[in-house]
Design a protein around this nucleic acid. Structure first.
Lengths: 177, 177
DNA sequence: AGTTCATATGTGCATTGACACATATATGCA
DNA sequence: TGCATATATGTGTCAATGCACATATGAACT
């Protein structure tokens, strides 16, 4: 009970095709959730069978036709029912931390390189989040719908800042050793 | 390529049975990685076939016999080889953040309750981490093996502090609305 | 005497997820 | 002409994960 709800959430914003959703997952919510396009197409099929979404084929010249999915009232009900279920504590589930637990058994040079790469990735992500915040939420959340998205973004910013600080402190100690 | 390595990492510390490992996963590294006991037993079987671990049956009176697994040289080699592979950026993968994206479509009371529950869970986890730090690492990392574990713990502490601050700020805004 | 708890090891099944492969068309580039 | 890229939708398959169920024993509790 996860990907289907993430898809429904995306469709509350606007109707989308499977292709649109795959791109949306890759950009917008890539840090909360990940999905490949075969997963998305299969999930959309199931959701349509359950009546949570309806599809509408858009004829296009040249390009293949798009099947645009919209959320239904039943889908909105399913979302609300899901929102009442308890949420699990997310795991960190990070290879890097597992490797640190056995620091005397790993390749130290590789570890340093991985922490440096990770640091760069977090810095880049932070920059992206800052960019989105400045573009979309410069004046705070204008409409109620935006509040949740802004708070999600704030979590992302803080999360990245935390990782950056940690990576820096780890690198310092690894390079001293 | 994940659980098997996490198990090998645990076995670098000391030989353990499947039962021990299941408990170890539940307590020590529960926030980095999770595994149920069937998963662990199956993985141990595979690792033994690959020659990464060896088992030694300990006869016990009364209780069922324990099969104690130890890491082999081949297992240590496998760990080192794995440590050279690139690490993926971990996802946040949090239901709560997905729900926030569709804040106008979720049950607001349930959401508030979930954030409060989450806040309590993070506070509890932070306390546990502080306790471990004070017990095991009060004078910093005494031996080199401890350094990695201490840095993992520091990440955990920072991570929980970040979530706590975020939950508090979210709650405030949710209760105002 | 019956129940629950802790120790200890597993099997079976369903769901999820990841990844390669398959197909079709138009555009731009070398 | 050939190749990569973007658009667009899928199938087939295998590994990983999760959860319920199965089994066995001793100790402590009711």
């Amino acid at each position: 009970m996860a990907l289907s709800h993430a898809i429904l959430v995306c469709l509350t914003e606007r109707p989308m095709s499977g292709y649109d959703l795959a791109k949306f997952f890759d950009t917008s919510i890539a840090f909360f959730w990940k999905a490949t396009h075969p997963q998305i197409y299969r999930e959309l099929k199931k959701l349509e069978e359950q009546g949570c979404v309806t599809s509408n084929e858009e004829v296009q010249s040249g390009k293949p036709n798009r099947k645009v999915y919209s959320i239904t009232d039943a889908g909105r009900d399913a979302l609300k029912a899901w929102s009442r279920e308890p949420v699990a504590l997310p795991l960190i589930k990070d290879d890097l931390l597992v490797r640190l637990q056995a620091i005397e058994h790993v390749d130290k040079d590789a570890l340093r390189a991985q922490v440096r790469a990770r640091l760069a990735a977090h810095r880049e992500q932070l920059e992206q989040y800052h960019h989105i915040r400045d573009m979309r939420f410069s004046g705070g959340a204008a409409v109620p719908e935006d509040l949740g998205k802004l708070m999600g973004l704030e979590l992302g910013i803080q999360y990245e800042q935390g990782w950056i600080a940690w990576c820096e402190s780890v690198l310092e100690r690894l390079e001293r050793a």
